[in-house]
């Protein structure tokens, strides 16, 4: 504890950071709440000196907006699919990596590589892999040439090529591509965290389990997973939060169109909705949507924490 005489020094050291945080973090949060409750708030109109009435209009507008429900649905669906799949896959990969001796370091590096790659670039590669026709922004009349490696593989095994992301593709196909891409993108960080957790588990628990003749599956479910539960909780909670903020990955695959060429915005998410509102100068509506998103994330995280309190063994 610094004695009170010298506390002013500490305040001086902290001042630049506090000033920046007040201007660029605290005020925007307060301002978002303010704008959300001002009817039809728009930055342009505000600059022109217009006054806005207080009210809940922005929220009703958001909810009644044509695309809002689909944005919410996309966001929730992506979360609900990708979080469990990526967590379970990451767990299995981490456990396997932890079990091997030779090549462990090399494989660890390979599994971590996607993390250091730009996700838009990865998205474009995925788009190319799932492509079905010559050009990405295809039209109905374009000649269909199977170009993507995924369809090549499907055809190699005698299957029918699938229209994943191009003109006329189905919502289910689009969503499948998104889930594969997001899971793949989310794996490296989770593997890293879980592997770190695994390596800190005392080996004697496994020796004890061996002496007790514990079958492998039971070792995983009764020993590894509970001992890893703090890491698992961390991974699940953060990936739900990331999931609700999903946006870049859609841009990565579909571009700004946020959907196949014939149905723009089909895969738009909550964050995408907020950006769209901002680009039409409807800051009030964007703020209201941001608060709704915040409320959803808050509730989901509280539920997560509630569950983890019972399930996590520190």
């Amino acid at each position: 504890m610094v004695d009170s005489k010298h506390q002013w020094k500490a305040w001086i050291y902290l001042a630049p950071a506090i000033a920046l945080l007040l201007v660029f973090t605290v005020w925007p949060i307060i301002n978002t709440v303010r704008m959300a409750f001002l009817e039809n708030y728009s930055g342009l109109k505000a600059a022109g000196g217009q006054a806005f009435a207080f009210g809940l209009g922005n929220f009703t507008k958001v909810i009644e907006y044509r695309r809002f429900v689909s944005c919410l649905k996309n966001t929730v669906l992506l979360c609900v699919w990708t979080v469990p799949i990526s967590t379970v896959l990451a767990l299995l990969i981490a456990v396997s990596l932890n079990a091997i001796r030779p090549l462990q370091r090399t494989l660890q590096t390979i599994f971590f590589l996607p993390y250091v790659t730009n996700s838009i670039a990865i998205g474009m590669v995925f788009a190319a892999m799932f492509n079905i026709v010559g050009s990405f922004y295809g039209t109905e009349n374009e000649i269909v040439v199977t170009a993507g490696i995924i369809n090549n593989i499907i055809e190699f095994f005698g299957g029918e090529p699938v229209n994943w992301i191009n003109y006329g593709s189905t919502y289910t196909a689009n969503l499948t591509v998104m889930i594969v891409y997001i899971v793949w993108n989310a794996l490296p960080f989770k593997i890293l965290v879980l592997l770190g957790g695994l390596q800190s588990i005392n080996k004697q628990y496994y020796e004890a389990a061996r002496v007790d003749g514990t079958p492998r599956w039971r070792v995983l479910t009764r020993i590894t997973v509970p001992l890893l539960s703090p890491m698992l909780a961390y991974v699940i909670i953060t990936s739900f939060i990331d999931g609700f903020k999903e946006y870049t990955s859609i841009v990565g695959i579909f571009g700004e169109n946020m959907g196949p060429p014939d149905d723009a915005g089909r895969l738009n998410t909550m964050v995408g909705f907020i950006y769209d509102s901002l680009s039409t100068n409807s800051q009030g509506r964007a703020s209201a949507a941001a608060l709704i998103l915040f409320a959803i994330i808050l509730v989901v995280t509280l539920v997560n924490l509630r569950i983890s309190k019972k399930r996590v063994h520190y």
């Binding site: 004697q204 628990y205 020796e207 004890a208 002496v211 003749g213 514990t214």
Partner: peptide, 15 residues
């Protein structure tokens, strides 16, 4: 597991 032994570890290794 097939030897029929009981082993008590130095730090007990209780789950």
């Amino acid at each position: 597991e097939n030897r029929g032994i009981g082993l008590v570890f130095q730090n007990y290794a209780l789950y």
